[in-house]
Design a protein around this nucleic acid. Sequence first.
DNA 1: CATCCACTGGAATACCGGGTTC
DNA 2: GAACCCGGTATTCCAGTGGATG
Length: 418
Amino acid sequence: MGTSSKNLFEKFNHQSLIVKGQRQALEPGFVPERLPHREEEAEQLAEILSPSLKNFKPSNVIIFGKPGVGKTSVVKFVENEMIKAIQSSLDTKIKIIDVNCGIVDNPYGVLLAVGDGLLDTWEEKLPFTGWPLDKLYNTVVEKINNFAGIAIIVLDEIDKLVRKSGDSVLYQLLRINEIANQGRVCILGISNDLRFTEYLDPRVKSRLIEETMVYNPYNATQIYDILRDRSLYAGIADSIDESAMKTCAALAAQEHGDARRAIDMLRIAVELTEKGSEGRILDDTIYEAKRKLERDVVVETVSTLPLHSKLVLFSIALIDEIKNGGSSTMGEFYDLYEKIADRMGVSSLTQRRVADIIGELSNLGLTDSKVQSFGRYGRTTTATLNYGSSKIKEILIADEMLSQLKDVKPMQKSLPVS
DNA sequence: CATCCACTGGAATACCGGGTTC
DNA sequence: GAACCCGGTATTCCAGTGGATG
């Protein structure tokens, strides 16, 4: 390495890094050693799970709460504490199995995760497809029997699992305790949705929900405390303005008291500061971080959409353009979508499917859609873009597949005034 | 209160990846 | 290793339904 010429990375080394501690403290998924304003919840959960340390099956628990209110953090925290507690006593047999039902939302996947979680390290993993469900289930039961301890199955986002695949897996998991002669399972569910239990069979419901905990959203002062705590971990406390931290907390409190969002904003503010020249995080940095966060989310969601969703969104954007911000009806954008798909050389989906795609886009917050009835003249769904059509188009066209649509202009039709 | 259009839920179909059987 | 079994996912097909207007 030459001494006279600068190393390529040197420039970046000299960036004014303001993080002097653990950078992970600002990343999603970090589990702190302290849980400001969730100490009681953690203790309560530990109490519920404590029988497992004496080899008794704890009650099944469901934790409810909006996103970013610390559900997962509390659970992870308690898990870690429990693992520490087990290490000191050799005669307790506990396995904790984490399943993120946001990703694994089908019966096979859940049973597979449970089965794999019960394997000893030298055992070969179970096949991730191919087996009949009952064979997989029998294997899981057998593993529980051999294990002869308490298996705590943590089902994060359990509401998604139930919505997509019903409660059959839950029924099967609960039934293990009846058919296995040794070993017990305890289910710890985490849900964003208070009402998901309505989808449950009463028999499953009563057995699954032996204990419930509801976590309330944080208020601004609580989020402030959390941010302060994290900034201490990250070693940025000296580099952040008091009022900036308050602003950050206040902004996040306005949006459902989501602490995760506050931490995301703080992290981006840190990154912006390290790239910039200010050297300190100010109020303005926070506002800029907020804007960047929102922008990033839109780009991310739009660009990861499946092809046909992109085409539908493109149609809506085009109609938005001609109508200058107006909404479009199913008939309009479906026609346009068909033409676009044809031009791209892909076969178009049916209207039925496109109706679902509209619903998905609306769930993602990219569009607003509602059904409108015109009485005697039937009814349709209308869709409106939530972001500027030019911006949406720009993101869409960045996709290689869609780049050929760059110059597509819909022929001006006389559209009914809505 | 009939009417009309497409919304909507569910059953059917096609396809995929991967084990299992002979 | 060809043919078959199995569950998951995406889509289509079909029939029943919703609801404001006229």
